[in-house]
Simulated assay, not measured.
Amino acid sequence: MNIVIIGKSGQLAFELSRELDNSAHQVTFLGRDNIDVTSSDSIYATLAPLSVDVLINASAYTAVDKAEEDTEACDAINSLAVANLAKYCKANGAFMVHVSTDYVFNGHKGSPYLTGDPIEPQGAYGKSKAAGEKALLEILPEASCLIRTAWVYSSHGNNFVKTMLRLMAEKPQLTVIDDQIGTPTWAKGLAKACVSAAENKTAGVYHWTDEGVASWYDFALAIQELGVEKGLLDKSIPVLPIPSSQYPTPAKRPHYSVLDKQTAREAFASCKPTHWRKQLADMLDELSA
């Protein structure tokens, strides 16, 4: 089939390119220099010659704190563009896979969020992603797969894991927030779920992260321990837990955003979610290689 991926510089696009590299599909990656997803005219002019069977939207505005001031650009990419792409898919009989975020929830539930739980985003980024979800599900309810994820990292691009490794090599000591709870997710596993959704045209709303639960502090400790073990760090430094109140940010983050993956385990049966610590170890092996 013809699979078109919107986005080519991000972590998910990087992993999608590796996942689809030896597939039998015709795969096209489109970045900002190829298509303006905020313009319907650009979308139609670019996609029409490609005879799209499935479109995977791997593009997003993800600068969570910057979004509090840059709301127009954030909304354009995370909401308007999703509506534009969904309208194109509806008009041309294409299936659409779209990735959203744990930030659509308020973080107060205290147990894993189900796909049908009410959404209540707390900041500009979460609100823009929620608006994108709403547009997709209104325009293309029968021919779309919405996958919410969280805490994504990979060996490509900038992310928490690589930032921690850099700071642990530079600083004598670090403080990391210990009262925000979620699940780290290697983009490689997320890419597999997206490809499964695309190949099988699995419609519906699903949650996909790695398995298990962690605070950012737990995650940082594991990064250091495995970083030393794999030769990415020369030594350990003290890493101290602090509450969110001691590290104020422009955007409010959900305190608890673990996502329930039961329906995804069934829908993407070939993907087999793996515990986040094993995934982290495998990604660090990539980095050390």
Rank of each mutant, 00 (worst) to 15 (best):
S111G: 00
D75N: 12
F105S: 04
N78A: 11
F95M: 07
K87Q: 14
A91D: 15
L85K: 08
A81S: 15
A91P: 03
A73P: 00
A124T: 10
G93H: 13
D117P: 03
A76K: 08
A124W: 06
V99A: 03
I77E: 03
C74D: 02
G123E: 09
C74L: 03
P118Q: 11
Y88L: 07
N92C: 08
C89V: 07
G107F: 12
F95S: 09
P112A: 11
G110R: 13
N78Q: 11
S79A: 15
V82D: 03
D117I: 06
G110E: 09
N106K: 08
D117W: 08
I77G: 02
F95T: 00
L114N: 14
A73N: 12
A124L: 07
D102Q: 10
L85Y: 10
P112W: 08
S79L: 00
T101C: 00
N84E: 12
A73W: 00
L80Y: 06
V97E: 02
N78I: 12
Y113W: 14
D117Q: 09
T101N: 03
V104M: 10
K90Y: 09
N106C: 14
P118V: 09
V82S: 06
Y88E: 04
G93W: 10
V104G: 04
H98V: 09
N92E: 09
E120Q: 14
A94P: 03
P118R: 06
Y113R: 05
D102I: 05
A73M: 08
L114S: 13
A94N: 02
D117N: 12
D75P: 01
G93K: 10
Y113A: 06
N78H: 05
Y88I: 04
L85P: 08
G123P: 00
P118I: 10
A91Y: 05
V104T: 08
A73C: 05
N92A: 03
P112T: 06
F105Q: 08
S111N: 12
A86E: 02
Y103M: 13
I77N: 01
G107N: 11
K109G: 05
L80H: 07
Y103A: 05
D102K: 05
S111H: 13
G93C: 09
G116E: 13
Y103S: 02
N84G: 12
G116R: 11
L85G: 11
L85C: 09
N78M: 06
H108F: 09
N106G: 10
Y113I: 03
E120T: 08
Y103I: 00
T115M: 04
S111C: 04
V97M: 07
A94H: 06
I119E: 06
A124C: 06
